[in-house]
């Protein structure tokens, strides 16, 4: 079985099996290891990516369903020159990263929220990241980073 989909802006075609998950496809086959494996049961959110504009846990997303879809991972969020995108920079500025293992998934959760709601409240942000576990930060600086990015984008800051 083969699927063809858009990955971080580029069309790719990959062989897949019935049981292959998107996370395994990304990490093992395509060597995009920014998407993290935390539990492989959809309980922690470390593997979060965006599929057709929606936040998905890639560890429970069947790769065979990818045909014709558009996938965005942490590797597709940075600027073309490889520097951090605005939300990534906001994570740095807010001190929202400690061990860094939940960070890619958190950033994807933040991006997914901002696609749907360009002016979220702090409670909106907390709900949007509520299936992404972070054991280091206590979440507050992550909420700060997403909120700051929302404000900056509303004020015409770079997306």
């Amino acid at each position: 079985m083969e699927v063809t989909f858009k990955l971080n802006g580029e069309m790719v075609t990959c062989p897949v099996t019935q049981k292959l998950t998107l996370m395994r496809l990304l990490r093992d086959d395509l060597k995009l290891t920014g998407t993290k494996n935390g539990c492989e049961h959809g309980d922690c959110g470390a593997c979060s990516v965006i599929v057709d504009g929606k936040l998905e846990k890639s560890c429970i997303y069947p790769a065979r369903n990818l045909d014709g879809k558009e996938v965005l991972t942490i590797e597709g969020v940075s600027n073309p020159d490889g520097t951090p995108g605005d939300l990534q920079q906001a994570f740095l500025d807010a001190g929202a990263t400690q061990c860094g293992y939940c960070t890619p998934g958190m950033i994807m959760a933040g991006e997914a929220l901002l696609l749907q709601n360009n002016n979220p409240t702090r409670q909106d942000i907390r709900e949007a990241i509520s299936e992404n576990l972070c054991r280091c930060t206590g979440y507050q600086q992550i909420v700060d980073a997403i909120q700051a990015t929302a404000k900056s984008r509303l004020n015409g800051g770079a997306k």
Partner: peptide, 13 residues
């Protein structure tokens, strides 16, 4: 800022 933050936010760590 965190000395090792950039590679973590980029997913490159």
């Amino acid at each position: 800022k965190a000395a090792d933050g950039i590679e973590k936010v980029l997913g490159a760590a």
